[in-house]
Amino acid sequence: MTDRIRINLKDIVNNEERLAPGHRLCGGCGEPTIMRMILHAIEGPVVISTATGCLEVSTTVYPTTAWQVPWIHSAFENSATTISGVEAAYKALKRSGKIPADKEIKFLAVGGDGASYDIGFQWISGALERGHKLVYVCLNNEAYMNTGIQRSGATPKGANTTTSPVGDVIPGKTQWRKPFTRIMAAHDIPYVAQAAPHNYRDLMTKVKKAFAADGPAVLNILAPCPRGWRTESDQTMVLTKLAADTCYWPLYEVDHGKTVVNYKPREKKPVADWLKVQGRFRHLFRPAYASILEEIQARIDQEWERLLKEEAAG
């Protein structure tokens, strides 16, 4: 196992930037920083497939591209399947000698939460079941941001989106978010983890573990969207730290079935600390919605306790 991974920025600072500047993602978007961290954590050649979404449209505007690695986008729901086709081609061409036997290539599929939790759910599940050697990364900004902030299966309860708007009778999204990371882990694949970019060491360690795994791996990474979350562009890392400190977004991994919580806040902050700094939850602080805040806190507590129990169970 890869239990001794050390991330030292001085070791990687001279690496080539494989996601070049000049991409058109919004200032302060969490996605490009996460992609840079991922690419700096990957050693050697990598081929990337990306689902339709902000990352895709902003990094490749014909006739330009920000990618300095082989990259493909084919549709919204199928980045896992597209890369599984690339990986299969790699195996076939290696077998027929068209790719040298000693040439190692890594395979990465990327999708937003809409592409992962919703429209591409089956495609990811199929790719994991088939056991391709690939890493699937969900860049999770908790709504369909590219189309203008519509609710997805990842959108948390209470969030104000353009298809779960706050109205006179409905207080934003009324459903809980889908437990995507747990469902991915339920595929019994070698490695599944949740990460966030404020903790780059943890994130990059998980990338290395994911690529070192003996089969498919999934990373669910929280990616703040200043536009959709109604936050300032410089707060991106502050926000994901709050998400981890409130246990809204636990940093954990399921490594060959064994759950490890990688970060346990010394003092667990109330979830309101996370909610109140974001415009998408502002309405929840009206007195009328106090019970929703309580429900959310109770749910977070319950999920955190369950996670700790899973870890204790080993």
Partner: peptide, 27 residues
């Protein structure tokens, strides 16, 4: 010598074919 991908739907079949063909394979 073919790598056979037993996909979970026809949409996935063509998606995988797109990936493999773009990768440089005969598909």
């Amino acid at each position: 010598n073919t790598e056979f991908i037993p996909v979970e739907s026809e949409h996935a079949a063509m998606s995988a074919c797109v990936g493999s063909s773009a990768a440089g394979a005969r598909v």
